[in-house]
């Protein structure tokens, strides 16, 4: 079942992209082309095949639970001009309803 433009718009909302109508049209085509490619995977019987999330076996490393310095607040806040110098934080649009 090919994706419809409305479904593409819904995915755009999930991905936090304010897509234009032209982009929705183009992406609908492109995504359906890719889904056609993916269809060939469905023919492969894989019921008994375990998934690979990392190709090389990885051990979990433990480190000593020691406090190490993090980046100084001024350096981090210097990365954007949208800061409140008095409160010492990032300025964002209103999040909580009045």
């Amino acid at each position: 079942m090919p994706l419809t433009p409305d479904e593409v718009r819904k995915v755009g909302t999930l991905a936090r992209l304010a897509l234009s109508d032209d982009e929705v049209d183009r992406l609908t085509h492109q995504l359906n082309d890719l889904l056609d490619q993916f269809a060939r995977l469905q023919q492969l019987p894989t019921e008994s095949v375990p998934p690979t999330s990392h190709a090389v076996p990885i051990q979990a490393f433990l480190r000593e639970d020691r406090i190490t310095p993090s980046l100084p607040r001024e350096e981090v806040l210097a990365l954007t001009s949208h800061v409140d110098d008095y409160l010492g934080g990032f300025v964002v649009p209103q999040v909580i309803e009045e």
């Binding site: 995977l41 469905q42 492969l44 894989t46 095949v49 998934p51 690979t52």
Partner: peptide, 15 residues
């Protein structure tokens, strides 16, 4: 399941 999990299983076959 249809996409990501399937692709990870195919990854095992390639390995």
């Amino acid at each position: 399941d249809a996409f990501y999990l399937k692709a990870q299983k195919v990854r095992t076959l390639i390995r």
